[in-house]
Design a protein around this nucleic acid. Sequence first.
DNA 1: CTGTTAGCGCCTTCAT
DNA 2: ATGAAGGCGCTAACAG
Lengths: 341, 341
Amino acid sequence: MAGIPGQRGGATIYSVAEAAGVSIATVSRVLQGSDKVSAKTRQRVMTAVEELRYMPLGAARSLAVRHHEAHGLLLPELSGPYYSELLMGFESRAAELGQSVVLMLAEGKDDVARAARSLATRVDGVAMLASAAIPDALPEMLRGSKPVVVIAGEAKPDVEAITSENTASAQALTAHVLRHGRRRLVFAGDPASGPDIRDRYAGFVAAHEDAHLTAAAPLPTELRESAGAALADRVLAGDLDTDALVCANDELALAVMKRLRQGGRSVPDDLAVVGWDDVMTARYVEPGLTTVRQPVRELGALAAERLHARITSADTVDETQVLPTQLVLRSSCGCAPDPLG
Amino acid sequence: MAGIPGQRGGATIYSVAEAAGVSIATVSRVLQGSDKVSAKTRQRVMTAVEELRYMPLGAARSLAVRHHEAHGLLLPELSGPYYSELLMGFESRAAELGQSVVLMLAEGKDDVARAARSLATRVDGVAMLASAAIPDALPEMLRGSKPVVVIAGEAKPDVEAITSENTASAQALTAHVLRHGRRRLVFAGDPASGPDIRDRYAGFVAAHEDAHLTAAAPLPTELRESAGAALADRVLAGDLDTDALVCANDELALAVMKRLRQGGRSVPDDLAVVGWDDVMTARYVEPGLTTVRQPVRELGALAAERLHARITSADTVDETQVLPTQLVLRSSCGCAPDPLG
DNA sequence: CTGTTAGCGCCTTCAT
DNA sequence: ATGAAGGCGCTAACAG
């Protein structure tokens, strides 16, 4: 019954037991830190473990205890600081809860749903970011088999959601720009790309209504540099009449600003530009980018936490939890620059 | 023998077999895509699978096939674009190879070695970044139990290493700065923090020797904004005599530049500043940051690939593989600014 | 083409 | 405090 120590594949609980002259039950006990093992037996076992460089097989344990002790996390991609922060928060909280995290990126997968199924095969639950890159049907598909929590998305029956506040801060941001006297605001971003962008646009509209103005239709734009440059080109070419661009994230805003400058336009004098996320570059550029900071790391941590709660108990929170967000005023909106830069 | 469909925990291969009126072997076959199953049986099985929302248990499969089909990745943290890129490269290649990736961050763990052992418990091999945050003994600890490849580090007996080129490009970068007439260069970064920084400093020294100059001792500095600001303060206060700062990464360089500007110094006129990594901000700031670009994503992909090779065969590459790197000249070194900004 | 039957390595009652 | 034995869900011969 004993394994073959030293072989590829390594020692098993049997070889350890044999080497220590005890039964596998005892080995299991000391490994679990049970207190009902005599000190000397424990010692013998530990010695055997070291000598054999024994390393338990996670799969066997999982099979026996009937759970994986792992959280799945499904993200669209990983560019920019947003996802990284989220991931750090998630991993760190998961680790505290004794869970490992198996990560999966939608980017580059031709069949995300398939991949997600296979992910679900090896974790106790999965957290996923609501995004166009991730099929909307996914949560429903997994729901019933595994607990699911969606991040920056919306709750559905039996799938919990957490997000950071979008509408109100978008409204505040937009109102702020309006207060600078701008009247031809354009929202750059695609409300269809996910609930968060959609809500930001909703706030944009709400602020206009508050001011008895009517908001322009959104300008669907990808959240990347190239799209920003293209957008700026349209402005430079004169085929976009606007005096303030409300961009759905900072990368877009920064790319726009850069190209605008190259084209000889001044921000904010000719055109105000604001963004979302407060990435590092936002405070390094000149003028500083006015934006909204969200507690991304906390969002990740909360996701891990809620997921764990749903796994260990049937405990579900019905309303989607919303984390507060913060307006960061710099000078790209028209505010006076901070003398400290 | 049949499971209890509908219960928490879900259907098993037994319940599916029963529902489809076949044996578990047949179910297994259709799930593996075996071609020796009649079309109609296959259909019956698939139907049962759908109706029962069957989802195989990864752990059981792993136990049976005797491998996890998962790669472990151990990173110090995730801030900045470097790790994200690396991770994206790793995940995407791993996915192509049919491996999931379980990610683990050293940051925040009080006992990284312990955590790493537990990681090793559920993967077929682990890739880790060489860094001060990750115990140097780790590769050795795991070696023998699981294949290990270290990224940005050095090969040891039985642990493979891959890295991107450091010394030569650091040498080229330094030579370039010297060619601008600077003579009091200072290297900001801690050679003890990891093999990559150490090699960059080595290149710094080599360039000086080539010019029959003698290089100043390194100025151990953390690679973060706060440290950069502090460094700049020392310059502003006049207790650091230098006309060119060679920073070990871009974040540091950017923070230095920013604070220097706030303090009224001009870059590059008063002081040249160069960095490493070519982060996004590097091309957005004014002046543009001269830096070195490394193929980080490819590095991640290569790590996944080598790891997989070592897992599936005994195939080991002895010499550490080195990926080429590229000097990116902008104007923070003293070069004339690109009119296109 | 399909079913039977051993394990895979570990945990966990149940005895002792 | 320790051992014996069954079972977790799946794969893979081996028979038919």
